[in-house]
Amino acid sequence: MVEAINKINRSDMKYQTTKPIVEYKNVQKSYGDVEVLKGLNLSIYPGEKVALIGPSGSGKTTIIRMLMTLEQPTAGEIIFDGKNLWHMERKGKLVPANEKHLRELRGDIGMVFQHFNLFPHMTILQNCMTAPIQVQKEDKESARKRSIEMLEKVGLGDKLDSYPNQLSGGQKQRVAMARALVMRPKIMLFDEVTSALDPELVGEVLEVIRDIAEEGDMAMVLVTHEMDFALDVADRVIFLDNGVIAEQGSPKEVLEESNNERLQQFLHRFRN
């Protein structure tokens, strides 16, 4: 019952009464001659759960990497939390952002990677504690306490002093999520976080994402090939094709009711 209400409230946000947390404004990205994104316009709202789907090479990863400041757009603007991410003002003119500017903004953005990228020389607990202490200047005890709580939440309370190479893929990915969550981001980006996992480990990771999603207040962008999961968790599904948004809407609209031909082809491949 409570869940159902949550769900309704969340889909209400789609009606966009609040200010977006992220706005892509005519964002283009090319690698050399290859045009990956051709003028992307996309707004994501606080607390909204967006699933990004699309064929390989359609630019899904590129979209979230630009927001994580790992990749610079070729043209256009990304507005995060009301501020221009890749540009800053200097003497009344817009100039490319420097590291200091990026650091001020990216603290509210978190990301989980396909290949975990845990720090292999640190224990699980150190993996989680380091950034709150170093970046947010949180005192050690409280960072430790919060990290342990977070690791317990993802079911790894008994692994605090293990090293990443002692964990299964599913456990590693749950650590990676805990590590991102202790930073309390306003938006969290997931890049195919289950696709490097053995099939039997996918479930435990999706379960954790579902839990996070149900807490509500953090926006999430999920690049995923798990259609059932997207249908279940997302408020909005975006189908990306050839560098543009080819279809978007509620999970039901996109995954079940759309008659976009490319989308049909794409989904067909997943249903078998």
Partner: peptide, 27 residues
């Protein structure tokens, strides 16, 4: 050192110096 290590430490908002000192150099 794997590029993913730098990317993860950027995602955690470590400064360039912290990235080198705490993540890249020890490895």
């Amino acid at each position: 050192v794997d590029k993913g290590q730098t990317e993860a430490s950027i995602a955690l908002n470590l400064s360039p110096f912290q990235r080198m000192r705490m993540v890249i150099f020890p490895q």
